[in-house]
Simulated scan of single mutants.
Amino acid sequence: MAYSSARQAEIVKEVVKRLQEMEAVPYVPIGISNRHVHLSQKDLEALFGPGYQLTKMKDLKQPGQFAAKETVVLTGPKGEIQNVRILGPVRGKTQVEISFTDSFKLGVPAPVRESGKIAGTPGLVLTGPAGKLELQEGVIAALRHIHVPPEFAEKFDLHDKEMVEVEVGSVRKTIFQHVLIRVSDKYVLEMHLDTDEANAAGVKNGEFGKIRKG
């Protein structure tokens, strides 16, 4: 049976609640983030044409965020990756999030950074149906992090910008260190890993990790 994204969020919330009741430790659902692009309106128009607006394909778990139907091509010194999804809504600055595997394929040395911290990062070429854009900076491998609503943070003594550990997996049990806590009343509880991190630990979308104080 297929559930809507809203219903899936309700189910995950109920599972987390029951886990917290069973043990006095914070569990967090895991979302695996594939390569994607956030565009500024200016850069969106450079790639898709004047006045262009993103077309929503599906909502993401974080409120107001969505996967768009539009994709672009990423081109670096060593290669290219096609059909890279754009996530909306538009942002103030363009940012490209890739894994280390993608970094090797493109020939772009993406540093591990918190989202939005793009000063001094490398660029690449973006290609859309209306043109190309030579991005001067903005390519990162996203620092693993957890979106935390305030009530959850208060219950488990978690603080914005704090670093924690998260235990995940079973057969390939892994403890991820240096996981950034991000607290906001705009967030739904979720840990984000990229595809390399998830594959290494044998973790799938919707599984749970256990937050530990390092």
Rank of each mutant, 00 (worst) to 15 (best):
T174H: 11
G88L: 08
V168Y: 04
A141M: 09
T121I: 09
G79S: 03
E97K: 07
K186D: 13
D160P: 00
G138F: 03
T94V: 02
L158A: 07
F152W: 09
P109K: 05
A141S: 13
R182M: 05
I98K: 03
R113L: 05
R182E: 03
R85P: 03
G88D: 06
L158S: 08
V148F: 00
T94S: 15
A130H: 14
G138W: 00
S115F: 09
I146G: 02
V168G: 04
N83Y: 12
L180T: 01
T174F: 07
P111D: 11
E134C: 03
L135A: 10
K161G: 01
S170L: 15
I86R: 05
G79H: 02
G116D: 10
L126E: 09
Q82I: 07
E165M: 09
Q82A: 11
G128A: 13
K155Q: 15
E151L: 02
K132E: 15
Q136H: 10
D102G: 11
K132I: 11
G107Q: 08
T75G: 00
F176A: 07
G128K: 11
E134N: 14
T94M: 06
I175C: 08
Q136F: 07
L124C: 08
I181M: 07
G169A: 05
A153H: 01
L180D: 00
E167T: 11
K105I: 14
V166A: 12
E162A: 07
I118N: 07
V96Q: 06
L106Q: 13
T94Y: 05
E134Y: 10
L124E: 04
S170E: 15
I118P: 03
R91D: 03
L189K: 00
V164T: 07
I175H: 02
G123P: 12
F176Y: 13
L124T: 07
H178M: 03
V90Q: 09
H145P: 01
N83Q: 13
L106Y: 14
P150C: 08
R182T: 01
